[in-house]
């Protein structure tokens, strides 16, 4: 169980040099570039595409690098599964009677892409934290209901996690490490009880927020200014993307998106 991680996850929201940029600019550039990276299917293009993520990785010095590296390490646990699972189920010529040669290459590309896309999104979007992401969504014209839901869910998670943690401990004490149908029933009742217990409190919390000026007031605090700095940053990403499309075109003979 990693409920305790919820209380440490805020450590990730550190000061970054990228914080000087408008949140909308960061989200737009990150999504466009990550989408382009997802379309690459050869090693040369991916190598060229990895330059910018590497620069982003180094932008905040050693501390920023360590934070991202730690996140990538936990994320790469899934890579082990990919490397084992995909080559076995993929068709093609076999290596060691079990692994498909093409499957091994595809899983290698997937793991590579997983890492470079993650660096871009971790550095540009995730590290902003919920409040700035909400501000970016507001700036990009996302509906108020969705943003309200995001803020309330973030708040309810911390509210419910305390209750959930207590219930988990109680179930552990009563039942030990029980599995099977009784474990399943205990889990279902625990979720139901948490929902009931926290329901009243959450509704009171929303009423209190309403008294303090409403949920929509939160995002109004976020600054959004589009200056020459944001435009230059977008231009840099655009040039890099154009270069990447050219390299990919020269390698595969098609545009990367085809």
């Amino acid at each position: 169980m990693i409920l305790s991680d919820l209380h440490t996850c805020r450590d990730f929201e550190n000061e970054s040099r990228l914080d000087a940029l408008d949140a909308r600019c960061r989200v737009i550039c990150a999504f466009a570039f990550a989408f382009l990276l997802a379309s690459l299917r050869d090693i040369v293009s991916l190598s060229v595409g990895s330059v910018l993520p590497l620069l982003l990785l180094c932008v905040d010095g050693k501390r920023g690098f360590t934070l991202i590296a730690r996140r990538l390490l936990s994320m790469n646990k899934i890579s082990v599964l990919v490397v084992l699972f995909l080559p076995i189920t993929y068709p093609g010529e076999r290596v060691f009677y079990l692994f498909s040669e093409k499957g091994l290459f595809i899983s290698f590309l997937i793991v590579w892409k997983l890492n470079v896309i993650s660096v871009v999104l971790l550095k540009m979007v995730t590290s902003m934290g919920i409040a700035r992401i909400n501000g970016a969504l507001e700036g990009l014209g996302f509906p108020l209901k969705l943003r309200t839901l995001l803020l309330l869910t973030a708040r309810c998670i911390f509210l419910l996690s305390e209750r959930f943690g207590t219930m988990c401990r109680a179930v552990d004490l009563r039942m030990g490490n029980s599995g099977g149908i009784s474990g399943c029933r205990a889990f279902a009742y625990m979720v139901g009880t948490t929902l009931i217990h926290s329901s009243d409190r959450a509704e009171r919390t929303v009423l209190a927020i309403g008294c303090r000026g409403g949920i929509s007031g939160f995002s109004g605090l976020a600054e959004s200014r589009w200056t020459w700095r944001e435009s230059s940053f977008c231009l840099l990403f655009l040039i890099n993307s154009a270069l990447l499309i050219l390299v990919s075109h020269s390698q595969t003979g098609f545009g990367p998106l085809l």
């Binding site: 409920l3 209901k145 309200t148 839901l149 309330l152 869910t153 708040r155 309810c156 998670i157 509210l159 419910l160 996690s161 959930f164 979720v191 948490t194 929902l195 926290s198 329901s199 959450a202 509704e203 919390t205 929303v206």
Partner: peptide
């Protein structure tokens, strides 16, 4: 909306 947020949180925590 708070009920939707609660269900969303339960999905997250489960």
């Amino acid at each position: 909306i708070v009920r939707v947020a609660m269900a969303s949180s339960v999905f997250f925590l489960a």
